[in-house]
Computed example of a mutant assay.
Amino acid sequence: MNDVTIRHNPDRERFEVLVAGNVIGKAVYKDYDGGTSPQRIFYHTVINEEYGGQGLAGRLAAVALDETVDAGFRIVPVCPFIKKYITKNPDYAGDTAPIAPAHLEFLNDALAPRARA
């Protein structure tokens, strides 16, 4: 698949996979001030079903995690896919922060207004 683009869309707090200019997948995050270092909490990753099985989620995760580390953030893998990806790619382990109750509370508070809308 040659027309695949992966980009960071900071205004929407996500990394996106585009095919022919259409968003077909995303890795969504919230930035968190962890005190000692900035952290990026990844909480949801999805690829449209018709594009499954093509390795796009892995490509998306690699770009998202590389850009996150390059920007000076520690990775907080709340999303099961991102967590599994890090397990299979241990080079990211040193850039990962353990999930803490404060992360989950922050996410809950940050996402609650969207859930009510």
Rank of each mutant, 00 (worst) to 15 (best):
M1G: 12
N2S: 15
D3N: 15
D3M: 06
V4D: 01
T5K: 15
I6E: 07
H8I: 00
N9A: 12
N9K: 08
N9C: 00
P10F: 13
P10V: 10
R12A: 15
R12N: 12
R12F: 11
R14V: 12
F15G: 00
E16F: 11
V17Q: 09
V17L: 11
L18I: 05
L18A: 04
V19K: 13
V19R: 14
G21K: 06
G21S: 02
G21I: 09
N22I: 10
N22F: 10
V23E: 10
V23L: 14
I24C: 02
I24G: 00
G25R: 03
K26M: 15
K30T: 11
D31S: 08
D31Y: 08
Y32M: 05
Y32C: 02
Y32V: 05
D33M: 10
D33W: 14
G34S: 06
S37N: 00
S37G: 00
Q39K: 13
R40Q: 07
I41V: 13
F42Y: 10
Y43W: 14
Y43K: 05
H44Q: 05
T45R: 03
I47F: 06
I47P: 05
I47K: 01
N48F: 09
N48W: 10
E49Y: 13
G52H: 15
G52A: 14
A57Q: 03
A57T: 05
G58S: 12
L60I: 09
A61K: 00
A62K: 15
V63F: 13
A64N: 01
L65D: 00
L65Y: 03
D66N: 13
D66F: 10
D66T: 05
E67W: 13
D70C: 04
A71L: 06
G72M: 04
R74N: 08
R74G: 09
I75T: 04
V76W: 09
P77R: 07
P77C: 07
V78I: 03
V78L: 03
V78K: 01
C79Y: 08
C79M: 06
P80W: 13
P80V: 11
F81Y: 15
F81C: 08
F81H: 06
I82H: 05
I86M: 02
T87L: 13
T87G: 11
N89T: 12
N89D: 04
N89G: 03
P90V: 14
P90S: 15
D91W: 11
G94K: 12
G94E: 11
D95T: 02
T96Q: 10
I99N: 02
I99E: 01
H103Q: 09
L104W: 13
F106P: 01
L107P: 00
L107E: 01
N108C: 11
N108H: 15
A110G: 05
A112R: 08
A112I: 00
P113L: 11
R114C: 02
R114P: 00
R114W: 14
A115H: 14
R116G: 01
R116V: 13
R116C: 01
